[in-house]
Design a protein around this nucleic acid. Sequence first.
DNA 1: ATATAAATTTTACGCGCGTAAAATATTTCT
DNA 2: AGAAATATTTTACGCGCGTAAAATTTATAT
Lengths: 341, 341
Amino acid sequence: MAQPKIKNMEEFAAASGISRPTVSKYFHDPDSVRPSTRQRIEIAIEKYDYRPNIFAMNQNRKLTKNIGIVVPLISDPYFAEIARSLESRCIDAGYRPSLFSAHGSAALEVEVLEHLRSLKPAGVLLAPLGRASDRKVLEKFCDDIPTLIFDSNVEEFGIAFVGSDNAQFTTHITDYLCRTGEPPCFFEMKTPANPNAHRRRQSYLTAMEGFGHAPQVISVAGEGWGFEEIGRVGGHEALSEGRFSTNTILCSNDRLAIGLLTACYERGLRVGHAEGCSIRVAGQDGHPHSRYTCPPLTTISHKYDAVSKSAAEALFAAIDGHVSPWKSTRLEGTLILRDSA
Amino acid sequence: MAQPKIKNMEEFAAASGISRPTVSKYFHDPDSVRPSTRQRIEIAIEKYDYRPNIFAMNQNRKLTKNIGIVVPLISDPYFAEIARSLESRCIDAGYRPSLFSAHGSAALEVEVLEHLRSLKPAGVLLAPLGRASDRKVLEKFCDDIPTLIFDSNVEEFGIAFVGSDNAQFTTHITDYLCRTGEPPCFFEMKTPANPNAHRRRQSYLTAMEGFGHAPQVISVAGEGWGFEEIGRVGGHEALSEGRFSTNTILCSNDRLAIGLLTACYERGLRVGHAEGCSIRVAGQDGHPHSRYTCPPLTTISHKYDAVSKSAAEALFAAIDGHVSPWKSTRLEGTLILRDSA
DNA sequence: ATATAAATTTTACGCGCGTAAAATATTTCT
DNA sequence: AGAAATATTTTACGCGCGTAAAATTTATAT
């Protein structure tokens, strides 16, 4: 309950009987003041409902408490989910996260980064667009601001990379598919936006060779981030031309698989490993929607929490000055068996 | 290409041969200075790559150029899509949008609003959680900051409401379903998070009465924002108990419908209006994913662009001081006929 | 209890820009 | 060209807080 109106730190400090620099120090780090002082300040905050002006706070600070979170496409529930998770971790660690999406556009990604600079963030968690990203801008940005790259690694930019072990993803699910039926073909975009796609194709080829099967990659045309539609249209084409050499299709990612499932439905093909099904389809990513496709999609899922935890902690450590050489952390995925394969 | 390093507006003004207050005025509104002056400033910006410190800019400004966009759940592609659209409009209009999600939590919504206050935004585009929202906090916020409510109206808060005409949505699609087969039952959550759900149920009842059919509402249990799962589990229950009195089910929203489709699949029920299908399912919202369900979902879609345009323009007008009495704008939806019904 | 370390207060200055008022220059109009 | 209207420059102050250094108080250790 506020009685008098406190309008700045000066007045707040006076009203709570503490000097302004100490109050300032408290807001910078509550643990940097004596416990008794901290308590007095916190009581006063309750009483006067005071909070410092964030613009004035950040103006002269070399290092703010801001953290930027940048994803290539927020409307993709996969990125939305991981962004949400990162956001929580930032807040819990006392930072102020700001979320940005490049909306699939390289130009916008550059703009976001530029805007982020002016926010003088303590650090940035960045999932780059990938292939389309402006390498030079990215590199410069990473040089200037502590940046952790996640999801898809571009080069050895920033302080570290955290993501999933795409090779393990594909090897693991390829193995599963081989053991439970015909060996899979690999269904992908010809020019994937994301570098992980290349790793997955490569792992598929390697795995198939290792298992003694002939690999077959079906690459479909399509630009941009409308993966479902690319999968659907490409699926129709490949299906009508009989380009799949086996009855099992491993998709490069879940969104492509979702589109392919739609194509299969539209062609009257029953998908699954049950009786009467003519085709098996599997995805990769553990997309939030994969549970609700028809049939529910067999996939290999990112460990969302683990990736987010690892990414956030690495960034926080770097911000706290714990320098360590650039490293790449890739977490294994979890196979999720459902009806589609 | 920057030769010398410009570090503040003072230096920038000196280097470009223009007084600092005029430069300041330019950044506040480029049209407020003479065209020749504007050009000189813009050439200098290019040359020195200068941009003002946003913290210092906003510190003393009574009105910033910030606009807050708040959605209840960013991981819902529907909100992600409309947020993206609003974001673009803000940028085009010269504002700086910041995106926030309440992640389905009322407590977080309050926190977001509180944080937004400290950003001294010129205006806010707010899609409230709905039923769970803290009314008093919302009201206070709307009193203090020009706020346009969109998607779901709580009370007559803020400067205006812009959303879809839920009554028209339901009436229209109910009509379609009645004309093309058995009249629909209505499938919904017992305690919906969103007030639009009540409008839809009511419209269903009214429409059915108008058409001379007996309505039947199936309300399923479930809390929170995991609509697909609620629809799936509730669908299983209702189906096993034979609670649907006709073969046609109109869902309160698309996400519920997606879950219901999964339930139907899991029970071996063929959905659609084609030969051999035992059940028809329709949704409401034009959810980005509805195109890719199996079968593709018949639904009635928000006019995303029109809603976003109307909302943004109303807010911009209010910010520019064009006061007008509170009003509610509700746009009609577009029926999207696909295979599910 | 006394020395030592740590926290706090005082004092003082600066950050980068907003903004108001008055003086001056430029444009526009007749 | 001269007057009126508009734009720009000068001048000057303030915003709310960061931060450094020295002085003082408080806590900790022996």
